[in-house]
Design a protein around this nucleic acid. Structure first.
Lengths: 199, 199
DNA sequence: CAAAGGTCGAACCGATCGGTACGAACTCGG
DNA sequence: CCGAGTTCGTACCGATCGGTTCGACCTTTG
């Protein structure tokens, strides 16, 4: 509660706090599942403040999706990096991190994919596409460092496993989805044709 | 236009025609992206008729999702079956069929997943779960006939590839998503430990 | 202390929402 | 030909939608 009533202590602070607070609400209720009035009430902010900072409900949605995409991608990248230098270990750690996410009781699938599924508007879909770009870059890097002859194709296949595991965990059964995907990913990594040159 | 004005020629016909006509509209616009009035207008039916047959907008949505799930699953199963008796050929044919779907300009991802992402209501999520069940059964059958030692795990991994390919095709790049997924699927099938016994 | 500006809370706007009601038009089985 | 059943078109309902406005309150700046 950094903003009791009125203040100009730091407008940027208010904006950041709003995005922080609104993330779980929009994630749980869905973009169209909550109105602006209730949304503002739940994050303890007036409508005027919302429209001052974000211009519209969609503006807030887009800002929070962008922030969330960067955060979750960084989280996965760090989980992979913390596993050491072996690309196989990095890949395994990445899927372990995913399983950890699936085990969270509030897990409801990928927020960006959920958003893109309901909002057919362009900005949201563009954010989702960039989100998949980030994932793809991360996975392609692992594939390249593992010496895959065609890291782009392997990276894309790994991306499908990541997204597929997330879908299955969200809509079917979260138990062991990450483990099964990890096993499949390592199999693909092992079976991929490789070049002699690794960087 | 099987129903010009008033008639009792066949109430069931009206119901079936409605579900047929409403499918592409809801798929393209999204469940909450179109109101009941416009929805009825676009399928050439009055609101009274809609509520007579389905009780509510959600009722119509659920009926059409269920029908679509069965139809698309059957379509994939038939594509696989038409490829012959070799499980590898069946799996390849299934992903070829998926690529064919992705190439359709109106392709917007899996309707059931899209619906579940926006409607947090239980009935829709249950339909989506059943939809994944159908896919899983199809893929597990292929895995079993291929002699996989653990067809349930392999089937689940293949399910992740199917769903992941669909997500990537819908939200990132539809080109070659099915081909890349097919290649990965065949790799998993080849690499899977197998029992000596095949039925 | 005064001006400037961020915030709140509530009132308010037109539009649209899902759903209901009803009379008229129509097709059927008897 | 007559009543039962279906459908259409439209008007209508209360609720909610996203968004705007405004006066009061508060904090910072000078």
């Amino acid at each position: 509660m950094p903003v009791p009533k009125g203040s100009t202590i730091d407008p940027e602070r208010t904006r950041a706090a709003m995005m922080e607070a609104v993330t779980p609400v929009l994630y749980e209720r869905g973009l169209d599942g909550i109105g602006v009035a209730e949304l503002c009430a739940s994050i303890g902010v007036s409508k005027e403040t919302l429209y001052r900072h974000f211009g519209s409900k969609d503006g807030l949605v887009e800002a929070m999706l962008e922030a969330r995409s960067e955060r979750v991608t960084s989280w996965l990248a760090e989980a992979a990096a913390a596993a050491g230098d072996d690309p196989r270990d990095q890949l395994a750690a990445l899927f372990d991190a995913l399983q950890q996410w699936y085990d969270d009781p509030v897990f409801r699938g990928c927020a960006m994919l959920n958003a893109a599924a309901q909002h057919h508007v362009d900005p949201v879909r563009a954010i989702t596409a960039r989100h998949l770009d980030r994932y793809l870059e991360l996975l392609t890097g692992i594939a390249r460092r593992a010496g895959a002859a065609d890291p782009h194709v392997l990276g894309r296949q790994l991306l499908m496993l990541v997204e597929g595991a997330t879908v299955v965990a969200a809509h079917h059964d979260p138990a062991a989805a990450g483990e099964h995907a990890r096993q499949a990913a390592l199999t693909l990594l092992s079976a991929a044709p490789r070049t002699g040159l690794q960087d």
